[in-house]
Design a protein around this nucleic acid. Structure first.
Length: 454
RNA sequence: GUGGUUGUAGUUCAGUUGGUUAGAACGCCUGAUUGUGGUUCAGGAGGUCGUGGGUUCAAAUCCCAUCUUCCACCCCA
């Protein structure tokens, strides 16, 4: 009769064992964020569409989940748009809220809205789910978590340096080797400017970003299609796609063409790489990659992306500097820079590398077997004392067959089981079964505490 | 959004050119073992074959729709 229930496309349930692992990732990331002086905030799952629309480009708007207005929304829609069946125009009349697409735009809104309560520079982190109406694939979901760290109200490049350190710290704690790819939008702008096509910057960015994936020839094809001039295409073909092409060469180009923006991009990159090479990284390598562009078009300065070594998966972290994000909400001259860790992909990477810690101390350490009413009353007091000492313990809730109770402990991987029957109560002892060996010992309460702690 | 792919027991999967009662392994439950799990042995439960419609004497099998899964594009964490 009842149909099997299900969940929407691209969403997932998480079992206890998955949650233990997910929390391990979140806890690690959170600890690093706090170590670097960032404070947590949260924002609502839904935002007004006016906040979200237009921030992610045309494609992004399509990927927003929109929420229908309450009440008789269709009655309030205009007949004109209904009969025209114009979805875009109709949407604005029947929906005014949407689920957040990322954490950066809601954060910008937050900063503007609370500007009087915030002392700048404002360093915050935020770990919450986001939603995208994308077609799901592996490592790509419609609901997923982002872990964002941003600092707004500071132009200092020290922030970029610090973010790279945070990335290195997080992945070294998670035991993942990574490559951090770094570029600067100003460099790309400088290139576009040097070849007299500054207006093509977006097309160029979108095309060149695919270099690793489709190769230089296809990139050139796409640039041609977008009417980018041959001189520029040739430059990409001969220089940018060439491994040995250096930052100094690029600098010379900008000198020759007198591109201020390009020169600035180069000096920013040099600042960051010099700092990082002095500080050193634990488990990551920092690489300049002039083909890195990133789709989100609010970036204006440094852009970076992190890939895990030895795992075929999209980028697991990305971010950059954005100068004008708060401006669209009416607050000028506030620059921000931040990165976003993709917890779900990090989970997949850890799984593939088999890099989750073997011991998870989050589950029960001791279980009391339940022999009956009298024993239960006796055990529950011991249980309370153990919990007060910080030991994770539980009492089997009914006096089921001993076999069933021990099977339960076995499946839950509880290392110690306490058997307290009439004899033990009389003797004031506790029989402990060590589940890994099957060995049993009779001890007292203090000895038990020491045993579990050892 | 475009093109392709997938769905059978709790799980992973068999299932012949459409043909009687849809199978296996693992898991689960019961017992051997009434105070003892992971091993062994014996037995048992569990499926309107994703959903809805169609073709046929007859459909898990063929057709259509729909949902879901995975993949490529697009885009991205």
């Amino acid at each position: 009769m009842a149909q099997k229930p299900s969940i929407p496309k691209g969403t997932r349930d998480f079992s206890p064992s998955e949650m233990i692992r997910r929390n391990y990732i979140f806890d690690t990331i959170r600890n690093v964020f706090e170590l670097y002086g960032y404070s947590p905030i949260e924002t609502p799952a839904m935002e007004n569409l006016s906040v979200l629309m237009g921030k992610y480009g045309e494609e992004g708007d399509k990927l927003l989940f929109k929420i229908l207005n309450s009440g008789d929304f269709i009655n309030k829609a205009s007949d004109k748009h209904l009969t025209e069946k114009n979805s875009t125009k109709l949407t604005t009349e029947i929906s005014e809220k949407g689920l957040r697409y990322d954490l950066t735009v809601p954060f910008a809104r937050y900063v503007v809205q609370h500007r009087n309560d915030i002392t700048f520079p404002f360093k915050r982190y935020q770990i919450q789910p986001v939603w995208r109406a994308d077609r799901p694939q592996k490592g790509r979901y419609r609901e997923f978590y982002q872990c964002d760290v941003d600092v707004v109200g500071s132009n200092s490049l020290l922030n970029e340096v610090e973010l790279i350190q945070i990335i290195d710290e997080v992945f070294s704690k998670l035991n993942i080797s990574t490559v951090i790819k770094l570029n600067n939008r100003k460099v790309l702008q400088g290139i576009a400017e040097s070849f007299n096509q500054p207006e093509k910057i977006i097309d160029i960015a979108v095309a060149i970003d695919k270099l690793d994936k489709i190769g230089i020839d296809k990139v050139a094809e796409e640039l041609e299609k977008n009417n980018v001039n041959n001189e520029l295409i040739l430059f990409f073909k001969e220089k940018i796609s060439n491994e040995s092409f250096s930052i100094d060469e690029l600098g010379k180009l900008f000198e020759a063409k007198n591109s201020e923006i390009g020169k600035q991009g180069i000096s920013e990159l040099n600042y960051i790489t010099t700092y990082i090479s002095e500080l050193g990284l634990k488990k990551s390598t920092l690489e300049l990659d002039f083909s890195l562009a990133r789709g989100l078009n609010y970036y204006t300065g440094a852009i970076l992306e992190v890939k895990a070594c030895n795992v075929e998966i999209g980028s697991i972290t990305g971010g950059g500097r954005y100068d004008n994000l708060t401006e669209v909400f009416g607050l000028k001259d506030i620059s921000g820079v931040g990165v976003s860790f993709g917890a779900d992909r990090i989970y997949d990477v850890l799984l593939q590398l088999d890099a989750f810690p073997k011991t998870t101390n989050t589950s029960t350490e001791l279980m009391f077997v339940n022999f009956g009413e009298k024993e239960e009353k006796y055990c529950i007091k011991l249980l309370q004392s153990l919990r007060e000492k910080g030991i994770k313990a539980e009492l089997y809730p009914s006096s089921a067959k001993l076999k069933k109770q021990i099977t339960y402990a076995n499946n839950k991987q509880i290392p110690f089981v306490a058997l307290i029957g009439a004899n033990e109560i009389e003797e004031n002892t506790i029989t402990i079964k060590k589940m890994n060996s099957g060995e049993q010992v009779k001890i007292n309460f203090d000895e038990l505490v020491n045993l579990i702690r050892s």
